[in-house]
């Protein structure tokens, strides 16, 4: 837990590929982990931009998800991210939505 703000440390998430016996592990050095977080933010923003949302790293322990009007949620991991996005938007964030897919395909 952060002694200043009282935020609990991030929970393990399967996509983080944390070191664990027998488990798929990647990005074990601090630099690799920071690079991965930065890339994850970039790629997530490519999707979230279609919903008017933006993601940024928050102190290397969480992510800050914001709307254009400044509504903000802190999220621990990718699973929390999409639930938080739906909460901020008040509507589903659906990767199978043909409208979203058409926009992504036009940009590709």
């Amino acid at each position: 837990m952060c002694a200043l703000c009282g935020v609990l440390g991030g929970s393990e998430h399967w996509a983080d590929a944390h070191a664990r016996p027998g488990a798929f592990t990647r990005n074990t050095s601090p630099l690799e982990r920071r690079r991965e977080r930065a890339r994850r933010v970039t790629e997530a923003n490519r999707i979230l931009g279609h919903f008017g949302l933006g993601l940024s790293d928050w102190q290397g322990t969480a992510f800050q998800l914001s709307t254009r009007t400044g509504k903000t949620e802190l999220v621990d991991n990718l699973s929390h991210l999409w639930a938080a996005a739906e909460k901020l938007l008040g509507r589903p964030v659906d990767p199978l939505d043909p409208g979203l897919l058409a926009r992504l395909e036009r940009r590709a």
Partner: peptide
């Protein structure tokens, strides 16, 4: 892996109850 994690978490968040099972053997970059 980064794109796969984003995509699958997004899919399971919205459609998890409709996905009884997903299993895979992946050739992950690196």
């Amino acid at each position: 892996w980064t794109l796969f994690g984003l995509w699958l978490t997004m899919l399971l968040n919205r459609h998890g109850s409709a996905i009884l099972r997903v299993k895979g053997l992946l050739n992950v970059e690196g």
